[in-house]
Design a protein around this nucleic acid. Structure first.
Length: 296
DNA sequence: CCCCATGTTCGACA
DNA sequence: GTGTCGAACATGGG
């Protein structure tokens, strides 16, 4: 499930190991997890080093070890981090277990879409691939104009798909993208070009708000998001729009290969636009939809 | 058996 | 080179 807040939560799980030395490393060398760097290189690179802490950037994590060793980690779809006793024996999907004096740091991932990297850097700074990542939604450098210029590059792309692009929205994943569209009351499939300037301002602001609340609620203790959000209603069959006075049944459909959930009543792309052009676009859309519908 | 899954990357094509 | 878009990756759960 990991999106930015879940990634932050998992990163914290390893914090208890800070200051301790890596005494034993257990791997599943054949696992796909090691497609980018062999398990042997991880073992060689981390053995005997002291764990100095972790940080996150979007869906990525970076763990620092003494001597300038940096372990990069991406959780993919099913990755998780936890700790276990120092004598822990890896279970089936636990691909990396770093055993320290008082606990083990465990990385598990059943689907193995996650991946690892290891950089040895002598500057004392994180590797450059890390420092060059685009600003996160909560970063001061994540600006309105950055959202506008990125949107201009992809006029045909559906808004929801744009939000999933890690080059501009690092950490935003499927549920957050849908949540942002829903809170903005914009149709996820609407081409970015149909969004007005103020609506793009809203994309910026709502991305930041959703990220902030998610980090506060999930990032530390994995608490429950507000029931006034789409998130707590989206997976249940027959789930309804939580907006006060709406309660319309939510719709789920595939958009560019990702399950997308929205409220067909609240989320219309031309809200607030009453000019002729908007009306023309709308009738075109409706015509296109009714031409398609007999297929079902 | 079927369908579905909170992610990324690759190749084909315009 | 850039943008668009579907398929593939591997496994488990309902």
């Amino acid at each position: 499930m990991p999106e930015l807040a879940e990634v932050a939560y998992y990163c914290r799980q390893w914090q208890g190991g800070v200051g301790l030395e890596v005494e034993r490393i257990q791997t599943h060398p054949a696992a796909r997890i090691y497609r980018e760097i062999p398990a042997a290189a991880i073992r060689r690179g981390l053995a005997g080093r002291t764990f100095l802490g972790g940080r996150t950037h979007g869906k990525r994590m970076l763990f620092e070890f003494s001597g300038g060793a940096w372990l990069g980690l991406h959780l993919g779809m099913t990755g998780k981090l936890c700790t276990a006793p120092p004598d822990h024996i890896p279970a089936k999907h636990e691909h990396l277990v770093l055993s320290l004096a008082t606990l083990s740091l465990v990385f598990s991932d059943s689907r193995m879409f996650g991946k690892l990297s290891l950089d040895l850097v002598d500057t004392g700074d994180p590797p450059t691939w890390w420092t060059e990542l685009p600003p996160q939604p909560l970063d001061r450098r994540f600006t309105k104009s950055l959202v506008h210029s990125f949107a201009r590059r992809f006029p045909k792309t559906p808004l929801k798909t744009l939000l999933l692009d890690q080059r501009a929205f690092p950490g935003i994943g499927n549920w957050m993208a849908d949540e942002i569209c829903w809170q903005l009351r914009l149709t996820p499939s609407a081409p970015v070009a149909t969004a007005t300037g103020p609506q793009l301002d809203g994309v910026w602001k709502t991305t930041r708000r959703v990220s902030r609340v998610a980090m506060d609620v999930i990032g530390t203790d994995w608490g429950d998001l507000p029931n006034t959000w789409l998130m707590n209603h989206r997976w249940r069959d027959g789930g309804t729009c939580p907006r006060r006075g709406c309660r319309t049944e939510l719709v789920r459909a595939d958009l560019r290969g990702r399950t997308t959930c929205w409220c067909p009543r609240c989320q219309t792309s031309d809200r607030g636009r009453n000019n002729d052009r908007a009306r023309d676009e709308r009738s075109t859309q409706i015509r296109a939809m009714s031409a398609d519908s007999p297929r079902s």
